[in-house]
C-alpha cells in the first residue's frame, strides 16, 4: 500500500512535513503523517477524565460527575440490562470542529488515507493495553457498498493490526437519526457469528467516534453474552 507518511506530506493538508531529526525517526524510518499545524488542531484528551468513557471532566458541570464516572456512565451502570459489559472506553481526541470535518471527509467522502492520520497515536496508546482480538464495528451490507470501506476496519489496518470480523449487523437504520433512548432500547443490533472464537478472550473494539456509547455497548453486550471475558473500546474521537 502506498504510504503517504514516507512521502513526508501531511495526510490532511498536503503540505510537506518538517520532521525532527531524531535517532528514533532515523532508525525506524517512521515519519509523522501530520504536519505540526494539523496536529495542533487536534485536541488530545488528557488530564482528569471519566474512567468509564474518557469524557474530560474539565469544563463539565459538577452535577454530571459522580466520583470517577460521568453521569452517562452512571446511568449505563445503573441499568441492569447494561451493567458490566464494557470495561472502559479510551478516546484520543476531542470531537472539535476540525476533527468533525476530518472524520466527515474520511467516512462520508470516503478518503481512506485519512485513517493514517491517527495510526501513530493509536499504536502508541494500544501499546499499554492487553487484548487478544481487535474487532471492528460492522457496517450494513448496503452502507459498506455505498462507502466502499468500513471506517472502523480502516483505522485498525492503518494502525498495523488485523481486524477480526466476527460480528454482523441485524438492523440497518442509521444510528445518527435516532435519539439516545431509541438507540439504547433496541434489542439486539449485532450478532456474533463465531461465538467459539471469542471464548474467554479480551476483546478490543475500535471505532471512529464514541457519541452516546450505545453502538459500542451493544457490541460489547453481544460479545460478553457470547462468552468473551472482557470488552474494551478505543475511539479516535469523543
Amino acid at each position: 500500500m502506498f504510504n503517504i507518511a514516507s512521502g513526508q506530506i501531511c495526510v490532511l493538508c498536503d503540505t510537506p512535513i518538517q520532521n525532527d531529526i531524531t535517532w528514533k525517526a532515523l532508525l525506524k524510518k517512521e515519519g509523522a503523517s501530520l504536519c505540526r499545524d494539523c496536529e495542533g488542531k487536534l485536541e488530545k484528551i488528557e488530564g482528569d477524565t471519566c474512567k468509564g468513557c474518557s469524557r474530560p471532566f474539565d469544563g463539565l458541570s459538577l452535577e454530571f460527575r459522580f466520583g470517577d464516572l460521568c453521569f452517562d456512565c452512571v446511568r449505563w451502570d445503573d441499568n441492569p440490562d447494561w451493567k458490566g459489559y464494557l470495561t472502559k472506553n479510551i478516546s484520543l481526541y476531542l470531537y472539535n470542529d476540525f476533527l468533525k470535518e476530518t472524520i466527515a471527509k474520511f467516512k462520508y467522502r470516503g478518503d481512506y488515507a485519512i485513517s493514517q492520520a491517527f495510526s501513530q497515536q493509536i499504536k502508541q496508546r494500544l501499546n499499554k493495553l492487553e487484548f487478544d482480538l481487535v474487532v471492528p464495528i460492522p457496517l450494513s451490507v448496503d452502507r459498506l457498498q455505498e462507502r466502499g470501506f468500513n471506517q472502523s476496519e480502516a483505522l485498525i489496518r492503518s494502525a498495523g493490526l488485523l481486524p477480526v470480523n466476527i460480528l454482523s449487523r441485524l438492523h440497518t437504520e442509521k444510528q445518527s437519526k435516532k435519539s439516545r433512548h431509541e438507540r439504547i432500547s433496541l434489542h439486539q443490533v449485532f450478532q456474533v457469528e463465531k461465538p467459539e472464537s471469542v471464548q474467554d478472550k479480551i476483546i478490543l473494539i475500535i471505532d471512529d467516534i464514541y457519541t452516546t456509547g450505545s453502538t459500542i455497548r451493544h457490541t460489547a453486550k453481544g460479545l460478553i453474552q457470547s462468552g468473551a471475558r472482557q470488552v474494551m473500546s478505543f475511539t479516535v474521537a469523543r
Binding site: 502506498f2 506530506i9 481512506y112 488515507a113 466502499g148 470501506f149
Partner: peptide
C-alpha cells in the same frame, strides 16, 4: 502523491482513488 490505494469493498481488490 495524491493517489491512495485501499482494500475496496466494492471491487474486493486493492483499489486506487484520487485524493
Amino acid at each position: 502523491n495524491q493517489f491512495f490505494t485501499f482494500p475496496c469493498s466494492r471491487c474486493k481488490k486493492d483499489c486506487t482513488y484520487c485524493r
